[in-house]
Each structure stands twice: as structure tokens, then as C-alpha cells.
Design a protein around this nucleic acid. Structure first.
Length: 326
DNA sequence: AGGCTTACCCGCCATG
DNA sequence: ATCATGGCGGGTAAGC
């Protein structure tokens, strides 16, 4: 997307300030700050950017040194706001205007947890979907009524403006970003190294309800079974049978546990498997479609375009590992 | 792109 | 009484 820098490197700036939450900052460092994973065609260069008048920030017992200051923010293709000190504290004007200018230049803005307050202050979220930690939702909605607040999702993605819910949902969002910048294979590899699930089960994490005290996951075995035999034709009532439930009950339990319906989930699993095959093999599209359980390539293309906003061939070209390596 | 058939899934309600 | 179940209808999305 931003074509200003060579597309092999995305420049990410994480904002820091006094009392920056270390957990959220840690997520950003762990994901965007790690060395390029093997096989990744594109990756990130991460720098910290202090919003204070000095480059050294203090948080609890830690001292953090930034490479950038707000004047140098134009370096970044992506800016991450890892939380904010306090929903009631108005972000400084020079920060707000720096973010507005950055966004106008095409810079992508990402917030984690209470970082949504900072993005909200720019006015850029007005009319857009956004989320934040559930405990700040009310305050955010009150202060910025024009925002279409979605308190129950893990994250929102509006292309250039992305927000995530409470702390750990920042991991989901950052992995989502890696997935769309660098491909599913790379995102999965990073998730494996972090020992977190590549996407929370039920996927379509954007629509997963955040808080629900992770209800008993009794359907996990069925889901694993389904994933392992995507190539064979399978419909929702097969899944229900496998789970020893009536179709009606199965559908209901499935929504409760995953936040999505069985069929939508199944289609998404097929798409994820297709991404992997596109990235790692040279199989023609028809073969990929068949291998993941779509009856025709047309069906694969249809869903692929709808959820990833691109075609299987374009996706393969962008993310395949063995061409233009490095 | 449009029409056609099938499958899904959600509200409603009876049942245990 | 509350609660999960599951059959049924029909609007709607999938698939060809």
C-alpha cells in the first residue's frame, strides 16, 4: 500500500511517552521489532518515537530511549500508539497534529487498548469503526460520540486506521497486520514463535467478542477434525454429526463459542489453507481450490476476493517465498 | 451478470 | 420456574 518506501521494508514507529504501558509496548517490540523471519519477502524496521520534548522516557522502573522525536515521525509508514496514560488526559496538540499530518501523507495509524483515545483525538476516527479496552469504552463513546464504537470485537481494520481492544488483543491486531503485509505463512511463523494461536479460534477475529469468559471449548476437536480434512467435501451437518449434536444445537453452540457461524468458519478455514498453498506451492489455482475443498476455482476466487480484497494469483505473486528471495 | 437450486441459519416455539 | 435442546419455517446467501 504505501509506496513511498521499498515494499520490502515497512517502517514502523511506536510512540513512547512517560508511563507508556510496557505490556502493550512489548507487543509491538516483540512483533515488529523481531528480525525478519526466514522466508519473509517483506518485513519491518521498528523505531521508537518519543512524544515528549526529550527522547528519554520513564515508565515505572524502566528508562526507554527513543530514536525519533515527533519531528521525525515522517520517517514512518506505520505508527503504533501502544495505549495512553489516561483516557481523561487530552493528548498533546503537537502529537495530535503530527498524527493528522502523518495520516494525510498515507501513514497507517494503529492503536492498542487505550491508544484509541489518541487516535480519537485526531478526529480521524469519526464515522469509522473503532474499539478499545472494554473498561474505557464508555468514556471513549462519551468523549467522541461520532465514532462507531464496537466494544465487543478484538480489533477493527479500516485500512489506514486500526484499533484493538484490551492489552492482549493488541497481539491479535499486530498479527493481523503482519498477515496482510507479509502473508499468512509469515504471520503464522511469528505466532508460533510467540506461542500464541495464529488467530484466535473462530478466526475472523474482528468479529470475535472480546470478553466472553472463554466458554468451554467443547467444539475444538470437531474444528480440528474439519481442518484436517478440508480437501474432502464436507458440509455443516457433517460437522454437527461429528459433534454428535443436532444441526440446530451445533449451530447455536458454534456461534456461542467462536463468534461466527459454522459455514462462515469453514469457508474461512478453506481460505487460510488456500493462502498457505499459494505461498508455498506452485499448484495451479484449480488444484489449490480443490485441495482446500472448494468445488471450483471460481468459488475460491469469489471468497478470496471478498475477504482478502485481492485475487489468488496476485496474492501468490506478492507473498510467494521462492521468487525474488532475500 | 443473471437466474436457478440448494444449503445455511435464525427466530419461534414445543419439549424435557 | 429457568435453561438447553432441537424441529420447523422461510428469508437469504452460497454455489453453479
Amino acid at each position: 500500500m504505501p509506496s513511498r518506501t521499498p515494499n520490502r521494508v515497512q517502517r514502523v514507529a511506536a510512540l513512547i511517552y512517560d508511563n507508556v504501558p510496557m505490556f502493550e509496548l512489548g507487543i509491538v517490540l516483540e512483533i515488529f521489532g523481531r528480525p525478519r523471519p526466514p522466508g519473509a519477502k517483506r518485513w519491518y524496521e521498528l523505531k521508537l518515537c518519543s512524544i515528549e520534548p526529550r527522547k528519554r522516557c520513564y515508565s515505572g522502573p524502566s528508562t526507554i530511549e527513543a530514536a525519533l522525536d515527533l519531528n521525525a515521525l515522517r520517517w514512518a509508514d506505520t505508527v503504533v500508539v501502544p495505549g495512553w496514560r489516561d483516557g481523561a488526559e487530552k493528548p498533546p496538540d503537537r502529537l495530535v497534529s503530527a498524527l493528522r499530518r502523518a495520516h494525510a501523507r498515507g501513514t497507517r495509524l494503529i492503536s492498542i487498548c487505550s491508544g484509541a483515545f489518541v487516535l480519537a483525538a485526531t478526529g480521524l476516527l469519526d464515522g469509522k469503526r473503532a474499539t478499545t479496552h472494554w473498561k474505557y469504552a464508555e468514556a471513549l463513546a462519551a468523549a467522541y460520540p461520532a465514532i462507531q464504537l464496537e466494544p465487543n470485537v478484538l480489533y477493527t481494520d479500516d485500512r489506514t486506521l486500526l484499533t484493538s481492544a484490551g492489552s492482549a488483543a493488541g497481539i491479535d491486531l499486530c498479527l493481523h497486520v503482519v498477515r496482510s503485509d507479509c502473508g499468512a505463512e509469515v504471520a503464522n511463523a511469528v505466532a508460533r514463535q510467540l506461542v500464541v494461536p495464529p488467530h484466535r479460534d473462530g478466526d475472523q477475529a474482528q468479529y470475535i467478542r472480546e470478553s466472553l469468559p472463554t466458554a468451554a471449548k467443547t467444539l475444538v476437536p470437531v474444528m480440528e477434525w474439519a481442518r484436517s480434512r478440508l480437501g474432502r467435501s464436507m458440509n455443516v451437518s457433517d460437522l454437527a454429526t461429528r459433534a454428535s449434536m443436532s444441526p440446530r444445537t451445533f449451530a447455536r453452540r458454534f456461534v456461542d463459542e467462536t463468534g461466527t457461524t459454522p459455514h462462515r468458519w469453514l469457508v474461512h478455514q478453506r481460505l487460510l489453507a488456500a493462502q498457505r498453498l499459494l505461498e508455498t506451492t506452485d499448484e495451479p489455482i484449480d488444484a489449490v481450490a480443490e485441495a482446500v475443498g472448494f468445488d471450483t476455482a471460481m468459488t475460491l476466487r469469489h471468497h478470496f476476493r471478498r475477504t482478502f480484497k485481492t485475487t489468488p494469483t496476485a496474492y501468490r505473486h506478492k507473498f510467494s517465498h521462492d521468487d525474488g528471495l532475500q
